[in-house]
């Protein structure tokens, strides 16, 4: 029997629109925990070695990266799809489909929120990459293709 291949719900690994890049990060391991193992406050995210931890609801954390040690851990790698919008045009693109105030004052680097993106419940984490604005979006896997198609359509028209 062949080794199982992880199939992402997102149809393209990378879409480049110049001012913004849309990258599939669904393969990253994702975990849900109920203990503040990373000392991250509600609404914030933190970077730890190869992991990113954030909290968007009281008493719960989501961790991307290696399996956290300690407490109850639920693997949500397959529950959530993840995509990343990076580039100077990322914010304008998101503002087409997301009502959140994404200004630096309200949504700085390492801010985290649960919101709607293209009508789909999404965990949004601002996780800048080398000083470039970057937004990590996590949503239920079944909606991911729909969200991705919408983002691509909006980006192509902008």
């Amino acid at each position: 029997m062949a080794e199982p291949r992880f199939a992402s719900p997102i149809p393209a690994a990378v879409e480049d629109f110049g001012a913004v890049q849309l990258v599939d990060e669904s393969t990253r391991l994702k975990w849900r925990i109920w203990d503040n193992l990373f000392a991250v406050e509600l609404g914030r995210a933190g970077r730890f070695d190869s992991s990113l931890a954030f909290s968007v609801s009281p008493g719960e954390w989501i961790v991307l990266g290696d399996r956290p040690d300690g407490g109850e851990v639920v693997d949500i790698t397959h529950v959530r799809a993840a995509m990343r919008l990076t580039g100077p045009g990322a914010r304008a693109l998101l503002e087409r489909v997301c009502a959140l105030d994404l200004s630096d004052a309200m949504t700085p680097d390492l801010a985290a929120a649960r919101t709607l993106v293209a009508g789909v419940a999404t965990e949004l984490v601002r996780d800048d990459v080398e000083g470039e604005p970057s937004y990590l979006l996590l949503m239920s896997r079944s909606f991911a293709q729909s969200v991705h198609e919408r983002l691509v359509a909006v980006a192509q028209r902008s």
Partner: peptide
Amino acid sequence: GDDEDPVRRSPLS
């Protein structure tokens, strides 16, 4: 506008 209702797809769609 250009809103579209999101749809859900199974991993096998």
